[in-house]
Amino acid sequence: MYSVYEILRDNWLLLLVGQYPNGPLGGIVATLILSVLGIVLAFPLSVLLALARLSPWRVLRWPATVLVYVVRGVPLLMVILWVYFLVPLLIGREVSGFTTMLCTLVIYEGAYLSEVVRAGIQALPKGQTEAARALGHSHLGTMWFVILPQALYNMLPSMLSQFISTIKETTLGYVINVQELTFAANQINNQLLTKPFQVFFILAMTYYVVCFSLTQLTQWLERRIAHKRLGAVQVQPAAGDSTPLPSPVAAPQP
């Protein structure tokens, strides 16, 4: 295990930031930046997709459903290959591995997140939608003011889970030369050549620590939300709690 310490001591900077400033930003910082950007950009897309899937208009519902099914039915690696192929065609010039990975993550995570958002919307009691519509709100107004604020809050733990998945998915950037943590670890392994077990042990443990901590955070958040949403215990109005009700005209005797 001393060699593990040695490897860390000699290469911690590479693992942390890649070859920066002598090259692009890499290592775990790049992994985290890629993940955060991916999820943040995927979020609005996912809300739009979820709304499209739940919309009463077929012209929105069908394409959205097809897109989500396709993205979920195909491996991430395949999506990466598609994006790598299509994006330069669409915008007319080559894109870096980082950009490709980011686009891929946005699409992939957008589809998965949209399922989370959709589940959150559908988990709300139907009465909320009915009440909003009964008050005269339009479909979109209902979504914006009543449904989405509740659904998104309830789904925070699931969204955080998806963020953790994104961190794990960034490892595939290795396949297209994106300088993230797995790439850095492979660089070290290719230099050392004789300590693969130690290097990959470090790699696995780094991911473990990051993802495990975030998982704990997710569970704490879940408990907190459940507590808040289920509400305080039903409050019994004590005597004099509410102001006296206006007295009606004396009711006619039966």
Binding site: P125, E130, A131, A134, L135, Y153, R229
Partner: peptide
């Protein structure tokens, strides 16, 4: 609809 007041059995207040 905005001109018809409706009160539900399960209240359906907006909890947020």
């Amino acid at each position: 609809r905005s001109r018809i007041g409706f009160v539900f059995q399960s209240f359906n207040l907006f909890p947020h």
